[in-house]
């Protein structure tokens, strides 16, 4: 019925309440969908981690109002996986911090982690596991984080 190649992807979306309860089912859904579309277990696992961290960030810093939601839209091509996470607008400070974290050099955060617990570690993981990551801020500070990952054997 459908086909998937380098131009026409399978597209799937999930919009869910801005609540950490939903992150685990959503990240596993994405990983399992990649696995059934013949991406390697390692690729699926790494994608699961990236989705987890970005959704977590969107919930904590982005979609903060009552009844807020987070949306993830995924495109599975034969040679790559692209996805974007949309939140509903966070605080200006948090957005600036996110922008800064995306541009960071390879300096590891672990030394600081003992004092700061896990703060900042998530984005470091995302940056190092993604080939391409972009962030766009739209109206009302609504933020979209886009990630592209190439299939290892493509």
């Amino acid at each position: 019925m459908f086909s998937m190649d380098t131009q026409t992807p399978y597209v799937f979306k999930v919009k869910f309440p801005s609540d950490l309860d939903y992150v685990s089912p959503v990240r596993k859904f994405v990983a399992e969908t990649l696995a059934v579309n013949k991406f390697s277990p390692k690729f699926a696992y790494r994608s699961e981690v990236i989705v987890d961290e970005i959704c977590h960030n969107a919930i904590i810093h982005g979609s903060r109002t009552v009844d807020a939601t987070v949306e993830i839209e995924c495109k599975v091509f034969s040679d790559r996986f692209e996805f974007q996470v949309n939140d509903q607008g966070g605080k200006r400070d948090d957005i600036e911090r996110l922008k800064h974290a995306m541009k960071k050099s390879d300096a590891r955060l672990a030394d600081a982690s003992q004092e700061k617990e896990s703060r900042g570690l998530g984005l470091e993981i995302v940056r190092l596991l993604s080939e391409e990551i972009k962030m766009e801020v739209g109206e009302d500070n609504m933020t979209t984080v886009r990630v592209v990952r190439k299939r290892e054997d493509a």
Partner: peptide, 16 residues
């Protein structure tokens, strides 16, 4: 099976 940055943060805390 799985750990994320929050989980790692707590492992570092246990070590400390």
């Amino acid at each position: 099976r799985y750990v994320n940055s929050t989980g790692l943060g707590i492992l570092l805390h246990f070590s400390k």
